[in-house]
Design a protein around this nucleic acid. Sequence first.
DNA 1: ATGAACATGTAAGTGGTTACATGATTGT
DNA 2: ACAATCATGTAACCACTTACATGTTCAT
Lengths: 174, 174
Amino acid sequence: MNSQDVILGMLLKGPKSGYDMKQKFQSTFSFFYDASFGTIYPTLSKMEALGYITKESIIQEGKPNKNIYSITPSGREKFQEYIHSPMESEVYRSDFLMRLFFGEFVDKAVIIGWFERKIEELEASHQSLSTGYEQFIHHSSPTQALCAEFGMEQLKMSFAFLKKGLEKLHNLEE
Amino acid sequence: MNSQDVILGMLLKGPKSGYDMKQKFQSTFSFFYDASFGTIYPTLSKMEALGYITKESIIQEGKPNKNIYSITPSGREKFQEYIHSPMESEVYRSDFLMRLFFGEFVDKAVIIGWFERKIEELEASHQSLSTGYEQFIHHSSPTQALCAEFGMEQLKMSFAFLKKGLEKLHNLEE
DNA sequence: ATGAACATGTAAGTGGTTACATGATTGT
DNA sequence: ACAATCATGTAACCACTTACATGTTCAT
């Protein structure tokens, strides 16, 4: 799975611009994928050259032309190739857990600070996710709903862990 | 956080070879970090050149010399610099969730196959993790125990989700 | 006047992966 | 006979990030 595959998948539901895609990456896909403009635009050019997508430029005043991309039959084929290829394993890289692992080499107060900031972070993403969550669940495909449910459960689990962990830390050597 | 920082952290507990480190990466760190030999060995050479670590070659017969690395005061400083720098956000990239998101474009049987394989995968990693889990919890620092507990809870949550999701899929349009 | 949203793109750099090369020893 | 474990290292490649460049409109 790379950005090409994801872009192909997005375009199955209709034409989109690079800017539109970035927004999808930051909202819907945010908790299991991400891509920057520095990836999106060059990938789009490459995919057009390969014939997986076609570009339609929409002239705009005051803004750069908007490039709307559509998937071609060859692109659909490419997507089916991806989706039926062997599944890749998950990648999870956590600076928080790494620091926690090395926690014995820093002051307790520093660790508590990490927990507090993580809790704030999760509270913020919970806020932005729960807004529109119910609607999303009901207006999306069954598998997309499943995806969202996983995200929610992950969030809840992490939250519970952090709260419990913070308490344990406070209770240490008192 | 990059491989350098993690290697520095590992060496705080005592000297290690590149091969030793790879094993740590695959066991202890596996669920929140990983690095291949192609990363480890060049990184080690670079770190030696920078003065963060020192090498001691142990001559062996029939095998290549074993290079045991130790951390220097400059390396300890570098580690403290990392551990007190702003925390990086988590990276989670899931091919499984991405495919699930695009589930409407494949046969239901294919999706069920993905779930079944994921369940098998998690069962295998649960087996290998739970062996020695209790000992690890009791023989490690409080923060390392917390790390392991997080891994376990994540595993349990994922497992429950997959089981429930598989049932939901079977019950679809019957 | 300041920043966010809209909109695309490039260049330099980073941080990795995969595959290959070497080769003895031990277990099945 | 075959695979796994021990043990290190390199070369080619890849995907991606960050920072920069450009420029308007709208809201505060």
